[in-house]
């Protein structure tokens, strides 16, 4: 217990620093607000009329939801992905400018330093997710208090896993420029090759699905973990799941553990 309290103080200190840095970074905050607004206002509103199809001669919504509702959980995940993975820039920053050494020479174990940093990044990313959640009414999504709590808990789990993933990436990249290119080549393909902006299996027949989407795209989407991560949040927020929710929950929980240990291996080297 006597050893545990100082470590807890240290984790809290590292977490607090990340929160202070995130809240003082106006650029990051601006991105956190403008990104979902652009997606929802332009993409969501613009494509809303096309989110319907002709089934057996009858024109109706592809899903029992409009496009804004369908896109809304995906925009939350996008905001979380950007903030979590971009958080790794702070790891590179700390490494380049010596701040990491200051912490690594302290009595805090490395796992505790990493845990504090990841918790800080995950909190900031969850905060950016909540910024989108506030727009729920605008996207015609009605939420009960329980759904809000469930969504925030899940968003935090996802943020934690993605922040660890970002730290793993940061361990592979040695410069800011490199990370910028690297992160964009990771975030955007992962996002678009998931079922984030279009439904993989709309309420049409299997025959029509194959006609609509090429097999390679369907296969890509099915192996992309972000597909399942978005699907869980969609289930919580609009009650629509394309897959059993336990798959997404299991993947996110596994990601939290696996990516944390992978990040720990490279952290502070």
């Amino acid at each position: 217990m006597t050893d545990f309290l100082p470590i807890l103080r240290g984790i809290h200190g590292v977490w607090l620093r990340e929160i202070m840095r995130a809240t003082r970074d106006r650029g990051q905050l601006l991105g956190g607000v403008s990104r979902p607004l652009i997606w929802l206002l332009i993409l969501g509103v613009g494509l809303n009329p096309y989110f319907r199809g002709e089934v057996f001669g009858e024109v109706r919504l592809v899903l029992p939801y409009n496009y804004l509702q369908f896109l809304f959980p995906a925009v939350i995940v996008l905001n979380i992905m950007y903030t979590s993975i971009q958080f790794a820039v702070s790891v590179i920053w700390d490494r380049e400018f010596g701040f990491l050494r200051e912490v690594l020479v302290s009595p805090m174990p490395r796992w505790a330093v990493l845990l504090g940093k990841v918790l800080g990044g995950a909190t900031a990313a969850t905060g950016h997710g909540i910024l989108v959640l506030i727009l729920a009414r605008f996207a015609d999504v009605t939420l009960t208090p329980l759904e809000v709590v469930e969504a925030i808990i899940y968003m935090f789990m996802l943020s934690f896993a993605l922040t660890c993933f970002g730290v793993v990436l940061a361990g592979k990249v040695r410069s800011f420029e490199g990370f910028g290119v690297f992160s964009n080549t990771v975030i955007l393909p992962l996002y678009f090759a998931s079922s984030s902006v279009f439904p993989l299996d709309p309420s049409l027949t299997r025959t029509q699905l194959v006609v609509t989407y090429p097999e390679w795209l369907v296969a890509l989407i099915r192996v992309n973990p972000i597909t399942y991560a978005v699907d869980v949040l969609r289930g919580i927020l609009i009650g629509f799941n394309q897959f059993p929710p336990y798959i997404g929950l299991g993947l996110v929980a596994a990601g939290m553990v696996v990516f944390f240990f992978m990040a720990l291996r490279g952290f502070g080297k």
Binding site: R9, G10, L16, R17, G98
Partner: peptide
């Protein structure tokens, strides 16, 4: 350290407080 290792976005007091926390004070 040879190179500056303070956090520029924090105040002097916050930098010290952070250090105290990671040393478990």
């Amino acid at each position: 350290f040879q190179d500056a290792s303070l956090d520029d976005r924090l105040t002097a007091e916050e930098n010290l407080d952070f250090h105290g926390r990671v040393y478990g004070m």
